[in-house]
Design a protein around this nucleic acid. Structure first.
Lengths: 131, 131
DNA sequence: GTAGAATCTAGAGCCGACTCTAGGTCAAAC
DNA sequence: GTTTGACCTAGAGTCGGCTCTAGATTCTAC
């Protein structure tokens, strides 16, 4: 029963049908999408899985060009593991850097929130004591 | 000796002079920048500190519009702590969500890296045993 | 069989966040 | 005194990543 319409894939992945077609044009799909009657796209579970990988990579800030590059390596089949590792390790660095940045920001927010909550506390106190 | 040129601020913050002017136009500065001879901008340490906050917020994915909103609250002076907290807490949620996403991606990368390293190991083994 | 929903392609449009250009002012160094 | 370099404004251009439109076709339900 494998064979999903673009609409079904959109629903499953959370991507819009527009974005699905766009990703395909951009070469983010590991296999050419099958076509059914009247040229309608027919996806299978493998496509959905791969899209899941792409979505995860995107969500962590990998640019489409890098995802395309990785996709091409996967498409090309085994034998280019060194290059795949290069792409992945590079992205891992970015992810770790980004995590540091988020942590720093979190510290900042926590600091500021404490200040504002402190001020509100004081105001409440003042309010409570007002005649 | 306070009084920094736009070039000096660019150097200190890592932003380009273009971006500094752009941020000012976008209302990201907590005080109107002083002007010296010939209308040249003159920044002080407070400006640099505030820019540091903006940079940190941007780096963690806060859109310029939100930074502007927060800046306006700060500009308006004390008394709007509730709104400031709202902005900050909303961003904290985004940051935490983003951290989760990065963690998931890291898992994926680690998984894939292990696979590819495994394959390379096999190949090395085969190579080593070749006559 | 026909109305309405889903799909197709090709290409245009949009948005956020910069980034750069043109044309001009000014101060300091040679 | 003129050249160099940092600065100014206003506005145009770029880039990534979608998002939408137009016009045509096809499936689905009645």
């Amino acid at each position: 029963m494998s064979g999903l319409s673009i609409g079904q894939v959109a629903e499953r992945t959370g991507l819009s049908v527009h974005t699905l077609r766009f990703y395909e044009r951009e070469g983010l799909l590991a296999q050419p999408v099958r076509r059914g009657t009247a040229g309608h796209r027919v996806y299978d579970e493998g496509d959905v899985d791969w899209l899941g990988v792409c979505i995860r990579l995107r969500a962590s800030g990998m640019p489409l060009t890098d995802i395309r590059r990785y996709t091409e390596l996967v498409k090309a089949g085994q034998g280019n593991e060194v290059e795949r590792l290069e792409v992945l390790r590079e992205h891992r660095e970015r992810v770790l850097t980004q995590m540091d940045e988020l942590n720093e920001c979190l510290k900042l927010i926590t600091h500021k929130v404490a200040i504002y909550e402190g001020r509100l506390g004081l105001r409440d106190y003042a309010t409570d004591c007002a005649p």
